[in-house]
Design a protein around this nucleic acid. Structure first.
Lengths: 143, 143
DNA sequence: ATTAGATTGGGGAAAAGTGGGGAATTGAGG
DNA sequence: CCTCAATTCCCCACTTTTCCCCAATCTAAT
């Protein structure tokens, strides 16, 4: 299970060191995709496989389902670890997520999220203020 | 599985380099044809065979199904790789997809799509705006 | 303080992408 | 039947990017 929040640097080749703690869970390969709210998601290959299968099964005849599948599948990318435990993020994903130099890697149970540090802080500040309200909403959802 | 997005150039002979990562999945031969939304689809021969069979089975009584099957089947063309891993796109397919110099090759699970870069960016921009709404709709479908 | 484990940065070798020349093939016209 | 022109295909060479390895720095724990 992935938990915790880490701050790492991207070097000027677009490489990002994945926290050592997470690496063994990603040994079998990993996939990065566009996530929600301008972050990137990093899935173990197995988890991704299930998601991809569902996406590929969406009806091609519906324009919106088609568009969604295209964004998700084309936006995804296999990543491999170098001998130092780093992954290389393709330019288009760095652009999508506004990643510059400082990045935050957050563990979210079954996946990792990668954020530009500034966006992360801004998002977190906003979310913390709303925590109480969110908690109430969640209560009604049975959490 | 094909995933990822690549930007490559067509040269003035209509040749396009297929990303190295995808080549081995296309070793057994490949077929290009007209795709949806003005792109081209590139299938491994095996996948194409199955699709062609489905197309041939469409009810001939429906004019639209008939037109669709005709476009896909008649537009299809075997492609071969040269020693640099490039394929040559016939002129009529380049025209159909408005391919000029810059092309995007997108991996979509069981096939590749080839887009004119400008059309791809426009399509993506349009689709991203709807992403959240689509994601919610799909959530209710169990994706 | 020393050692071990992690992160960061960079240099060099290898692979991938790009463009173009020229031979081989094809087809039309003399 | 032969010639010429146009197209296709094969190969070579250049450029750019990626990948792999080495080394320095930093943190934490003994």
């Amino acid at each position: 299970m992935f938990i915790g929040e880490y701050s790492h640097n991207l070097d000027n080749k677009g490489r990002l060191a994945v926290p050592a703690k997470f690496r063994q869970l990603l040994k079998g390969g990993a996939v990065v995709t566009r996530g929600l709210d301008n972050c990137l998601s990093l899935y173990p290959k197995k988890e991704w496989g299930e998601l991809a299968k569902k996406l590929a099964g969406l009806p091609l005849s519906q324009p919106e389902a088609r568009a969604f599948a295209r964004l998700m599948l084309a936006g995804a990318m296999d990543v491999e670890f170098d001998s130092q435990g780093r992954i290389t993020l393709p330019e288009y994903l760095r652009k999508f997520s506004s990643l510059k130099h400082k990045a935050v890697i957050a563990g979210l149970y079954d996946r990792l999220e990668i954020w530009d540090e500034e966006l992360w802080n801004r998002y977190k500040t906003g979310a913390e203020k709303k925590t109480d309200a969110i908690a109430e909403t969640l209560g009604s959802l049975g959490v």
